[in-house]
């Protein structure tokens, strides 16, 4: 797909659509059943009480056949399996970045450090930025996310990706942005009074633009 933001975003979207499709189908069946029942069996003038209607001080009869339980469980288990398989597929995709080794030349490892209240980005050559992340398009970016104070969550909403920033831990996540442009990075975990303003920009640029940017940054430092 030429217009895709990143392979993961495509995966996420199709999984979300799978969940939504199933939710609509199941919802239509269940709500259909509910509305039908309510309309069909509403009390009308002259309608007599069912013979097993609850009576004061009388234990109601047990009813309900195992058949419904069986049918319901089988259908639900099928749906659950579909959802779990879809979920595991997407999760495995996320666990296995398409690179041979961490030092693969097609990968760019960026350390992300959350602090109250912004993000610091460290490039392999020592360049550091705050509040602005510049990455090359089409390359696998590996984020090593941590925090130096409280818990944060790094989220890049357009790409449908995010991961916790926990003091003392490197939390890894990867992204392969395909489309040049500017995107928001936000904090998705309450981290104090500045939480709402803890946002950074992610700029996806062409490989050559990125190289010259990185050079200007390291030269300037």
């Amino acid at each position: 797909m030429a217009s895709e933001l990143s392979p993961w975003t495509t995966q996420w979207m199709s999984l979300f659509n799978l969940f939504t499709t199933i939710a609509f189908i199941v919802g239509a069946v269940v709500f259909g059943f509910m509305i039908f029942t309510i309309l069909r069996y509403r009390y009308k003038e002259g309608r007599s009480e069912p013979s097993d209607a609850p009576q004061p001080g009388t234990v109601p009869k047990d009813r309900g056949k195992p058949l419904l339980l069986f049918a319901l469980s089988m259908t639900t288990l099928t749906i659950i399996s579909t959802l779990v398989i879809g979920t595991f597929g997407a999760f495995d995709f996320l666990l296995n970045p398409p690179i041979k080794a961490p030092e693969d030349e097609n990968a760019l490892v960026i350390e992300v450090i959350g602090f109250q209240w912004n993000w610091r980005f460290k490039y392999p050559n020592g360049v550091e930025t705050v509040g602005e992340l510049v990455v090359p398009a089409n390359k696998v970016i590996i984020f090593k996310v941590t925090s130096i104070d409280v818990k944060h969550k790094l989220g890049i909403p357009d790409f449908k990706i995010g991961v916790d920033a926990i003091p003392g831990y490197d939390n890894e996540i990867w992204l392969q942005p395909m489309k040049e442009g500017e995107y928001w990075i936000r904090c998705y975990e309450l981290c104090g009074v500045g939480h709402a303003l803890m946002a950074a920009k992610m700029k996806v640029v062409s490989e050559s633009e990125f190289e010259s940017w990185l050079e200007s940054m390291s030269g300037g430092g």
Binding site: F19, V26, G89, F91, K160, I173, Y188
Partner: peptide, 23 residues
Amino acid sequence: FIIGGFSGVYNASIALNYALRGT
């Protein structure tokens, strides 16, 4: 309950959860 149940299943998906948690 039915509506809340549906949105809960999305959250339960570890893959979707990467973008849903905290929103």
